[in-house]
Design a protein around this nucleic acid. Structure first.
Lengths: 232, 232
DNA sequence: CGATGCTTTGAATCTCGTCAAGATGTGTGG
DNA sequence: CCACACATCTTGACGAGATTCAAAGCATCG
C-alpha cells in the first residue's frame, strides 16, 4: 500500500497546493501516483523536444524550466517559464509544439495522457482541475499576446518581474533570484539581451529597481512596477 | 419534429464543416439546436462585452467579428478574427477576458455553457470536437505569440494574409476582400495603421502584392508571402 | 590566474511610432 | 447629380525606441 504512495510524499508537485492535485481524494492521488513516472534532469536537458510525439504531460515537482519554440529560421520564442506545481502538455495534438528545457536541476512527473484523461472521466474533481489549468494557461497566453503587441521594453520587464514574484518560489520584492539568463528573458519578452540589460539599467536609474548581482533583482518601488506592468 | 431541426438547416454554422458540429449524429445536433439561440447583429455591435459574465459560448454562423481586449490605459489588442464555423468562449472563467465586436452583419448561435458541457458528457464525439477546438485555439495563440515576439512588420502582414486566405470565406490569392480596416489589422499585429499601410506599400513596391482598392488585396507572389510569413 | 561565457555599455543604424498633411472614398443633403 | 462633410487610408518628415555590432566589464571554474 505504501509503495504507490511513496512518490506522493516525496515530490513537491504531488502534495503542494498544486492545481492538478488540489482537493483530490486519497484514492485519486494513488491512481495518479501509479501512472506517474518521476524524471530527474539537469540544466539544459530537455523534458521534451519540440515536434516529438506528445503522448504525455508533465507536472513540475522541483526546479525551473522554460517552454520554448524555435523556428526553422533559428529564432526562439519562450512561451513561458514553469515552476513547481506547473503543468505542461495539456492538449491533444500529436506532437509538442514546443520544447521544455531545464534551467537548473528539475524533477518532474511524466504522466501518460490517455491514462490521465481516463482517470479524469472517473474523478469530477480531477476533471475540474484540468479545466481550470487549461483556463489559467489560456488567460496567461492572452496576457502575453497583449504584452507583446502593446507594451514597451521596460514595461514588459516590469510585467515579467511581477510574474516572477507571483510564480517563482521564494521570490519576494526585496529579493528575486532569477533562474534564467538575459537571453532567456529577452526571448520571452520579444527583445534582445542588450535591450533587457538597458531597460533594467533604466529602471535602476529611476530608482525603481536595484541589481545587487545580475541574477538577482530587488524591487524598490513596487507601485511603479505595478503601474508600468499593468495590462488590465 | 421539424421544429427543433429548423435552425440546423438554416444557419451556416449548424451544418457547415464546422469543428463543433463535425461528424455529430442527428440526435446530438437536435439537442444542440434546442439549446442554441440565434443572435443577429450588425456592424460594430458586440456579441459579448469584455468583463461581462461568461456563461455562454458562440458559434459564428455568418459574417465576421473580432475578439478584442482593451486595457484600462485604452490600448487595444485584437486577439483574433472569427468567421463562420468559428467557436468562441470556450473556457470556464466567470467573465469574458475579451469582447467580440462585429465587423459586418453577423449571425451567431449563442449556447449556454453548462448545457453544452452537459451534452458533451453524453456525446463522446461532441467532447472530442470541443477538445480539438481548444487545441486549435491554443495552437493559434502560440503562433501569434511567436509572431508578435519575433517577426517584423511586413512579415506580420504576410502571416496575417495567409491566415485570411486560410480562414476568411471566399478569400483566394487573386482576391482577398478584407472585412476589417487598417486599425483593426494594426491592433491585431501590434503595429500602427501607418505602419500597416507602409508595409503593404513596401510589399506592393516589391511586386509581392497589389492593392486594387484598400479593402482588397491580391497576392502576386505567393512563395514570397509564404517565406516572409514563415514561423515554423 | 587565464579562459570562457554572460552581462553591460557604447556608437551607429534601422525600424517603427508620432504628428501632420494630403488623398481617397462614402454617404448625405441640397 | 453634384457638392460637401466625414471616415479612412496613404504619404512624408521627424524622433524615439530597439537592434546590431563591437568592445569592455565581471563573474565562474578549471
Amino acid at each position: 500500500m505504501s509503495q504507490p504512495i511513496a512518490p506522493i510524499d516525496r515530490g513537491a508537485g504531488f502534495n503542494a497546493d498544486c492545481p492538478l492535485f488540489r482537493k483530490l481524494g486519497r484514492e485519486d492521488l494513488q491512481h495518479l501516483a501509479a501512472m506517474a513516472r518521476l524524471r530527474v534532469l539537469t540544466e539544459r536537458q530537455n523534458l521534451c523536444l519540440q515536434n516529438s510525439p506528445s503522448g504525455r504531460l508533465f507536472n513540475i515537482a522541483s526546479g525551473a524550466a522554460m517552454v520554448e519554440r524555435i523556428s526553422s529560421a533559428g529564432r526562439r520564442q519562450i512561451l513561458g517559464f514553469v515552476f513547481p506545481g506547473d503543468f505542461v502538455g495539456l492538449s491533444n495534438s500529436s506532437h509538442f509544439e514546443y520544447g521544455i528545457k531545464c534551467l537548473n536541476d528539475v524533477s518532474a512527473y511524466e504522466i501518460p495522457r490517455q491514462k490521465l484523461y481516463a482517470l479524469a472521466e472517473k474523478s469530477a474533481r480531477l476533471k475540474e482541475n484540468l479545466s481550470s489549468i487549461r483556463d489559467l494557461i489560456q488567460a496567461m497566453t492572452f496576457d502575453q499576446i497583449f504584452l507583446l503587441g502593446q507594451k514597451r521594453a521596460h514595461e514588459r520587464l516590469c510585467f515579467f518581474l511581477l510574474q516572477m514574484l507571483d510564480r517563482l518560489p521564494g521570490a519576494r520584492p526585496e529579493h528575486i533570484q532569477l533562474p534564467m539568463g538575459r537571453q532567456d528573458i529577452a526571448d520571452y519578452l520579444g527583445l534582445t539581451t542588450e535591450t533587457v540589460s538597458r531597460s533594467l539599467a533604466k529602471l535602476k536609474r529611476e530608482g525603481i529597481l536595484s541589481l545587487p548581482v545580475s541574477q538577482a533583482i530587488v524591487i524598490k518601488d513596487m507601485a511603479a512596477v505595478r503601474e508600468l506592468a499593468d495590462i488590465s
